[in-house]
Design a protein around this nucleic acid. Sequence first.
DNA 1: GTCCAGGATCGGA
DNA 2: TCCGATCATGGA
Length: 278
Amino acid sequence: MEFKFTDCGIEIHNATNFDLSQTFDCGQCFRWNNSSGKYTGVVLGKRVSLSKTGINKILIEGVSCKEFETYFADYFDLNTDYESISESFMGIHPILSAAVAECRGIRILKQDPWETLCSFIISQNNNIPRIKKIINALCNEFGESLSEGDYSFPSAQRLASLEPEDLAPIKAGFRAKYIIDAARKVSSGTINFQEIEKMPPEMVQEKLMQISGVGPKVASCVRLYGLHDLSAFPLDVWMKKVMEKFFKSQSPDVFGNYAGVAQQYLYHYSRSHPEVFD
DNA sequence: GTCCAGGATCGGA
DNA sequence: TCCGATCATGGA
């Protein structure tokens, strides 16, 4: 991959294994939206857009050179070799090689850990369109107003000052009390992501599960999408079906050190081909 | 009206 | 330790 800094933005050349729709619509994030091929999100308190401008060519708008080098290259995980990662597990089962063949354009984003935690608390027993709606309402109601009608994701400090009832307008239902508990543990330092990031995976999992409303699945999502622990293996209803049908009585260990990436391919593939369960 | 959604918690066996 | 009911809400 090569990066070119031009007047209109940052061009990624030779952008292999980076497909915008696969990356932003594979269920790992909820604040990126597609408008006729252009994906726009709010990251670091600013609007960022990506569009495909040619074969293996992608344009990033709204990001300075410095921001790209210090943050967004990692956010989009552009320095990871997904070719060798997928090679490490695609031989395990035909369903996996099929998933890799179709979903190789997915990149695991390195999102803000607090936003990820909050988002996946909201995700529990919920569907993706409504998850996006609730998160959008949360930002509009309690985030900071940016330019062009965008709102930042509300800080943990901001939400920590509220009571669960105050979240009524966003209609998060029973999850409101979990959001507030998470906000208070993060803003008070009981949960400190900078410290957590250095801990071994099992301890991170344990720490996160101290938050009420955070079980094994949500904790795994925070590790995978917020802390970029590619070994984290979120087991949701779909992945349980996949494991039951194709990897019966096997543990996630069979996928190796990059189980989280295998999970993402399998999740996205099986959801776009529900007939694999017939 | 019924069922389900990227689950977690609680109480009772 | 394990299992089922329950939790808000809205779209299919």
